[in-house]
Amino acid sequence: MKKFIKTKEMSMFIALAILCLIMTVSTSTFMTPYNIGIIARQISFIAIVAIGQTIVLLTGGIDLSVGSIAGLSGILCSLLMTKMHVDTLSIIFISLVLGIILGCVNGILIGRLKLNAFIVTLAMGEIYGGLILVITRGYPILDLPESFAFLGQGMIGLVPVPVIFMLVITVVIAYILENTPFGRNIYAVGGNSVAAKLAGIKVENVTLYVYMLSGMFASFSGLLLTSRMNAGQPTIGSSWVMPSVTAAIIGGTSLSGGEGTIIGTIIGAAFMGVLANGIVLLNISSYWERVITGAVVIIAVVIDLLRKIRSQKE
């Protein structure tokens, strides 16, 4: 418990709680079931992508193709549903496999050929993003089956369905990272890949797997958003790359690898979601939104640095 209070996750959690408190006191519209519902749903799409991104960041890599993978998967799944009448359960499975394949290309290029992660994922993102336009010519794919709407728009009791997916994925991945050899290998590769290699860890394989996971989560989130959007939108995910990295960084993940947690990333995503919602409810001009989000990232990194310096002194 004492350990948790000192962690950066806790300091971010306190910041999130304070933000929610300010919003509750200063507006009458924040703490309503409708508003909490929409915030939770908005967070869940980006959080699922950010979980994949966090795993990649933990190894010291970065995945800039998540947005295009989400979009391409959303489009291909929409086509399968409208042209070949694939049912909802199968389409979930297909989207996961599709994401793994798309992520696998990144993983092979980065892990096996030792290419730079930034460049590979940037370029693959362009390729996947271009394919979206080649396939759709810019038009959305309409008339998705009614039953498919449940994934992104449905509610179980008061909880939106995407939120449930997010919570399940969070618990599973957090468990894997902390309690399995694979999870520990991810931290080891990010902490010091040379030492990890000497310790007998197959660094190429770990790298391959993390990009596959990142692709899988991006693809799944793209499917959920397609359902929420009620159409296969060519622009799905195009604005997800920076928020997925930002959520992880606010949540305490280090860009140099080896440090960070899934819980932190979820808190980071929640913080950004509440902030974006607050900017609207508090009547702050939308021109300021990006300025504020950028400032929050800087503040989070500086606080993290101060905390590190203090702990080194101790």
Partner: peptide, 24 residues
């Protein structure tokens, strides 16, 4: 009040619309 998304991205605009429905 004008509340525009910073990118012409449907998911960004969706967030704006949903939050403004909350603001009633």
């Amino acid at each position: 009040k004008f509340d525009a998304p910073t990118n012409a991205d449907i998911s960004e605009q969706m967030k704006k619309i949903e939050a403004n429905i909350s603001a009633r």
